[in-house]
Amino acid sequence: MPTNNLDQLYRSVIMDHYKNPRNKGVLEENNVTIDMNNPTCGDVIHLTLKVEDGIVRDAKFEGEGCSISMASASMMTQIIKNKDVDTAVTYAHIFSDMMLGKEIDDSVDLGDIEALSGVAKFPARIKCATLAWKAMEKGVGEDSE
């Protein structure tokens, strides 16, 4: 069974985040709410953040989408928690570079996110992976484009 290529995309870390999403739900005490969708495929995300003194204190997401989009949202909320807004946005930029297949600075610890690097080889799925990050960037008021 030719699953080698599939394994490049669906790494076990991704499947774990998909099946056991971290930070799933809605933050009651939030001060940032973002709804975003991917009009080409119908994926949706509802992201709630609690940002205080320039620091993302908490983050939760709800949504509907494929394994890549939901795993990416789970990882995103995990890594931005307790980071300042600038760092969160930097992660979004790094993620965007990763999706474009660019070299990433080794010194940055990407944690689970690194597992999504294989998505760059599946052009049709890049938008799935970037949805949550775009929502986060919009939420913290910075546009990476």
């Binding site: 669906y10 495929c41 119908g42 994926d43 494929c66 394994s67 989009s69 599946f122 049709a124």
Partner: peptide, 28 residues
């Protein structure tokens, strides 16, 4: 299994199908 994931697995096996809302969001 989300339809996008279904479509990707099928594509890896040489099979082209459509996944998404098929330009019919009210129907979805």
């Amino acid at each position: 299994v989300h339809p996008h994931d279904v479509a990707t697995v099928l594509d890896m096996n040489g099979i082209a199908v459509r996944a998404g809302h098929h330009c019919a969001q009210p129907l979805m």
